[in-house]
Amino acid sequence: MTDGPNGAVVSAVGVSRAFSMPAGPVVAVRDVTLTIAPGEHTAIRGPSGCGKSTLLHILGCVDAPTSGSLIFDGRDVAGLSDRARSLLRLRHIGFVFQRFFLLPMLTAAENVELPQAEAGVAKAERRHRSLELLDYVGLGARAGHRPSQLSGGEMQRVAIARALANQPRLLLADEPTGELDQVTGEHVAALLDRVNADGTALVVVTHDLALAGRARRVLTMRDGRIEDEARQ
């Protein structure tokens, strides 16, 4: 896949997302226009309920905007089937969740192998790459451990390795340090920096000012809108 016409990995153009609620529709994201360039490091911050996770889900093609369009690598995502969107996520987007969501019955290496297996990578190759990735996140010695045998920080590092398994162009992290103590959070943040430095575009949604401060571009959201954009 190549970059879009404007060189962006993903572009949201005037996207809004409304949810139907019993008390009436709630608009989580309002008319947001945003472009993520290759290798860019962006943080989205803002108070709870301001729409930052919803925006992240839209950028990651797991949620569809009510209005506006999303262009991923030059293609309008709205026109893609569910299967095509799944393939797009599988090959080009990595997700890191606040609660890790590692599969408890699989070892760390097997968790990292999983998206590769789904993408059809040969067994030997995916095993090699999984061990390489676990080494990369500093857990080469824990490849055979189950999630229940790992600490929170270790689990998140495995989750990052899993997200990188198919060499995505865009890594989306939703409160990646939300469940971790400060020191462990620092380690995870440093790892994410390294991933970005190695060329993967990174979008982090966080409350954590220190984590947001590591990004070159910080977007502040309020009431579904991007209220402020700072570059450092």
């Binding site: 990651g60 797991v62 569910d82 299967r83 799944s86 393939l87 797009l88 996520r89 599988l90 090959r91 987007i93 990595g94 997700f95 969740f97 609660r99 969501f101 599969l103 999983l114 998206p115 789904e118 993408a119 899993r162 997200a163 198919n166």
Partner: peptide, 16 residues
């Protein structure tokens, strides 16, 4: 359900 949603987010197809 959360695990399934995470797998879907990671690119697992609905069929899978």
């Amino acid at each position: 359900l959360a695990e399934v949603a995470a797998l879907r987010a990671l690119g697992f197809s609905r069929r899978r």
